[in-house]
């Protein structure tokens, strides 16, 4: 592991970005596959093969392209592009805030894609997606704020190499981040805008009108996004790479566990509780850090 990390650090920015672009979908797809398998086991089922997400994506690529309007897939492509871009920025080790803003841009394009098709269900999904975005955005920014307070830098590379355990300084921020990760991973109880499960009151939410290759693109973008988010979890434990990796995976398992144990919340509770939890955990942590300095 240490050699891997050293190798990674010895790489230049371009190599790292390329490595992310090539490896993240593999890792993301695999995680998604494990997710489905583990979820099935939680539900007393056998579950699909671990490579199932890849099969799904390959299949979707082979489907016919059907559209409601000509431009609907454009925003989806931008969504993928900027998700990959922000992920690459993150793994290049540059400014964390920049990554976050770029990710927000990607999210905005996704929402716009949901709006632009002009279908009632994808519109409802898009509206809910914005509510979710508003719910998680403060915590994501506070994450950067907290890390800056401790390490004195916004640079991901410097934060990752910070020797003291970040988690000890930022337990509240970490808890808040875990809370909103459920939204970002689109897991129950917060899978309001689009669910991987079919039975939802707004059908498939934002993805209702996207099919075939466009849906595959959305799926791949989520893989990239998930890998990047797990990377953010890693930052809290950057002082020990093994621990960091382990905790990142554990976090994902934890999210699956949460997913299995909750009904879907309504948007009021999702929004209210996220802001409240962010305020209690994240904000108090940051204020305490501010006072300590």
């Amino acid at each position: 592991m240490n050699t891997i990390q050293e190798m990674f650090q010895s790489w230049g920015m371009v190599e790292r970005a390329v490595a992310f672009i090539l490896l993240a979908p593999l890792a993301g797809g695999l995680i998604a596959g494990i997710d489905r398998r583990v979820s099935a086991r939680f539900q007393g089922r056998y579950g699909p093969p671990v490579l199932q997400p890849f099969y799904d994506v390959f299949k979707l690529m082979q489907k016919q392209r059907i559209l409601v309007n000509k431009f609907q897939n454009f925003n989806i492509l931008l969504f993928l592009l900027f998700t990959v871009f922000s992920g690459a920025l993150f793994f290049m080790g540059v400014d964390l805030l920049l990554t976050i803003f770029s990710l927000a841009l990607a999210g905005t394009f996704f929402v716009l894609a949901g709006f632009c098709v002009g279908s009632p269900f994808s519109h409802l999904g898009a509206e809910r997606e914005i509510i979710q975005q508003v719910a998680y955005e403060p915590m994501v920014i506070l994450l950067a704020v907290g890390m800056y307070q401790v390490t004195g830098s916004f640079k991901v590379a410097e934060i990752a190499q910070f020797q003291a355990p970040l988690i000890l300084y930022l337990p509240g921020v970490f808890a808040g981040f875990l809370y909103i990760l459920t939204i970002k991973f689109r897991k129950s109880p917060f899978d309001l805008s689009m669910s991987h499960h079919a039975h939802q009151e707004i059908v498939r939410g934002m993805t209702t009108e996207f099919s075939g290759p466009a849906l595959a693109v959305i799926e791949i973008a989520h893989w990239y996004e998930n890998v990047m988010l797990l990377g953010m979890v890693y930052l809290f434990f950057g002082f020990n790479p093994w621990l960091g990796l382990g905790v990142a995976l554990l976090t994902y398992l934890f999210e699956i566990f949460i997913d299995m144990n909750y009904a879907r919340f309504k948007w009021q509770l999702t929004f209210g509780s996220s802001w409240l939890f962010t305020a209690v955990a994240g904000v108090s942590n940051i204020i305490v850090l501010g006072l300590m300095r």
């Binding site: 979820s39 939680f42 539900q43 007393g44 089922r45 129950s188 109880p189 899978d191 669910s195 499960h197 039975h199 939802q200 009151e201 299995m260 144990n261 909750y262 009904a263 879907r264």
Partner: peptide, 16 residues
């Protein structure tokens, strides 16, 4: 009903 409020594992257990 569990499925309707998005509690998938409960749905599966009930049908089991």
């Amino acid at each position: 009903a569990a499925d309707a409020f998005g509690f998938e594992s409960l749905f599966m257990q009930a049908l089991r």
